[in-house]
Write a protein that binds this DNA or RNA. Structure first.
Length: 235
DNA sequence: GCGACAG
DNA sequence: ATCTTGTCGC
């Protein structure tokens, strides 16, 4: 498994070429091993800063009680480009991951898995990098067509790219927009959806990524990185 | 050519 | 991604 620390020096064209390579190594299949632990990961940063904060929160599954957490502060100059999110966020997340004493049986990331034009969303990319079992849980759609799921809790609708199913639009909470679930690596689509359903605790966002989001913002504020304005540009 | 476009 | 209070609706 290689080191993602050099991603910030990739050009967008190189990043896309790398995704085309990764694509050939994706494994989507039923996970046999029982899931006893699950973790959520998230990234936070200021709009005008190249400092990234990463957090992972690990839970006992399916009880969903926190076992441990890991955080990291890192830097990147790779910009946010739709479709290339992993090249911006994976390096920081990789540090937090390596700081975990024990790895979770499943990792949920905030973003797509294979529901991506080249099947290489951040969850898939990170799964291939670490050989972890990963699931993508995104708050908005990147790729794929789907019918709007019914307005009831856990209503779901498959997402397709051409004739290939790449994920599921899941109504995790009534009267809320769906979330977009897709396997990252080493797990199937139905199993990914099942696991995410078991992680819903009354909020739209599943507990693993929801708690990771709360923690990563907490450490960012504690670090003093909470400026709301871009300083010294016009006055 | 035009619209869409994870975080 | 982040900033940010109240407010409308189920």
């Amino acid at each position: 498994m290689e080191d993602p620390s050099g991603y910030e020096f990739f050009t967008p064209a190189e990043a896309i070429a790398y995704q085309e390579e990764l694509r050939n190594r994706i494994t989507i299949k039923e996970l046999i091993k029982p899931i006893k632990t699950i973790a959520g990961a998230d990234i936070s940063y200021n709009k005008y800063s190249e400092i990234l904060y990463a957090a992972i929160v690990m839970f006992k599954y399916p009880e969903m009680q926190v076992i441990t957490t890991s955080t990291a502060i890192s830097h990147t100059s790779f910009p946010y480009i739709s479709g290339l999110l992993a090249f911006r966020e994976v390096p920081a997340l990789f540090i937090a991951w390596n700081n975990l004493y024990i790895k979770p049986d499943v990792l949920v990331l905030d973003g797509q898995g294979i529901a991506h034009e080249r099947r290489t969303g951040i969850a898939t990319h990170f799964g291939l990098l670490t050989n972890a079992v990963t699931i993508g849980s995104a708050k908005s759609r990147l790729a794929g067509k789907y019918q709007e799921p019914a307005n009831s809790t856990f209503a779901e609708s498959p997402m397709y790219d051409k004739d290939e199913q790449i994920g599921v639009a899941l109504r995790s909470k009534k009267n809320c927009n769906p979330i977009y679930i897709s396997p990252g690596h080493n797990i199937s689509i139905p199993q990914s959806v099942d696991v995410i359903k078991n992680c819903i605790r009354g909020y739209r966002i599943p507990e693993p990524t929801r708690q990771a989001h709360l923690l990563v913002n907490k450490i960012r504020i504690e670090h003093g990185d909470n400026n709301t304005t871009q300083l010294g540009l016009f006055d």
